[in-house]
Simulated scan of single mutants.
Amino acid sequence: MPAPNLALWEEVGKTDPKFTKEYTGPGGFTGTAVNAQYLAKRATSSSGLAVPAGGMT
Rank of each mutant, 00 (worst) to 15 (best):
L39C: 13
P26R: 05
E11F: 00
A33Q: 14
F19V: 02
D16I: 05
Y23W: 10
Q37F: 03
V12Y: 00
A7V: 01
S47Q: 09
E11W: 00
E10N: 08
A43R: 01
F19K: 01
S46T: 14
A33F: 08
K14T: 07
L8F: 06
P26W: 06
A36S: 09
V12N: 07
G31P: 11
G13D: 03
K18A: 04
R42W: 04
W9K: 14
L8N: 10
E11A: 04
N35Y: 02
D16H: 05
G28S: 09
S47P: 06
P17N: 00
K14M: 04
Y23N: 08
A7M: 06
E10S: 07
T30M: 13
E22C: 15
Q37L: 02
A33I: 07
N35T: 03
P26K: 05
F19R: 03
W9R: 13
T24F: 03
A43P: 02
P26E: 15
K14V: 03
G48L: 00
G48Q: 04
S46C: 09
G25S: 10
P17M: 01
V12W: 00
L6F: 11
A33P: 15
Y23Q: 06
T32Y: 08
S47K: 11
T24W: 06
L8P: 05
R42E: 13
G25F: 10
F29M: 15
N35V: 06
T32F: 04
W9A: 15
Y23R: 07
A7H: 04
G28P: 07
Y38T: 02
D16S: 06
G27M: 02
K18P: 03
S46W: 00
R42F: 03
A7S: 07
K21D: 14
L8M: 10
A7P: 01
G48E: 03
T44C: 13
A33H: 12
R42I: 10
K14R: 14
S46P: 00
N35A: 10
G25T: 04
V34A: 10
K41W: 10
S46N: 05
T15L: 06
Q37S: 08
S46K: 07
Q37Y: 06
K18W: 01
D16G: 14
N35W: 02
S45Q: 11
T32G: 09
D16N: 08
E22G: 09
G31L: 02
K41L: 12
Y38M: 05
K21E: 15
T24D: 15
K21S: 12
L6A: 11
S47W: 09
Y23S: 06
L39D: 08
G28T: 05
F29S: 11
A33Y: 13
P26F: 10
A7L: 02
A7D: 02
G25Y: 04
S45C: 09
K18D: 04
F29C: 10
S47E: 04
T15C: 12
T32K: 14
F19T: 01
G48C: 00
K14L: 03
E22K: 14
T20L: 03
V34Y: 02
P26G: 05
N35K: 05
S47L: 08
Y38R: 08
N35I: 01
W9V: 10
V12Q: 04
A40C: 11
T20H: 03
K18N: 00
K41Q: 13
D16Y: 01
Y38H: 08
W9Y: 15
E11S: 01
Y38A: 03
Q37A: 11
